[in-house]
Amino acid sequence: MDFPRKLGKTAAVYAFILGFLYLTIGPLEVAGGIEKYNIPGDFWTGLTLLVVAANYLYAVRGLWRGEFKGASFLLTGFILSTVFGLIFILLMGADGLLYLLGEAEEFSPITNFRPEIWLFIASTPVTAFILKIKRYMYRV
């Protein structure tokens, strides 16, 4: 055990929820999306969401045991979700700019608010866990 089990169990449950969400949205994007729920069809991004899901789910067992190995996958999953979340926020801005330049007929922030963005926002509490385990990385 590398850090308190209680801390690890809380993180494990959260990692499982995040993994489950990514595992749900990823295949939907790969399969062509659901317009009604604002899930676009995006094959490659869908596949990357599955990679994020794999990282979060892979983290669960290690976190439950209070091991850094679990924290490692949680951190990587968080980095990937941050990368994609921030990219789609930037793309939202780019779409807005295209609209202002007269190159796009309409700009809808709601349509541009892709699952990757809200999944990234949902992942942000992971930072609190990472900061908490930081102190256990050094044996004083």
């Binding site: 590398d2 490692s72 951190l75 980095i79 990385m137 050094y138 044996r139």
Partner: peptide
């Protein structure tokens, strides 16, 4: 040091 951030990543 048990684990560094580099080890984690």
């Amino acid at each position: 040091v048990k684990w560094t951030f580099t080890d984690l990543l």
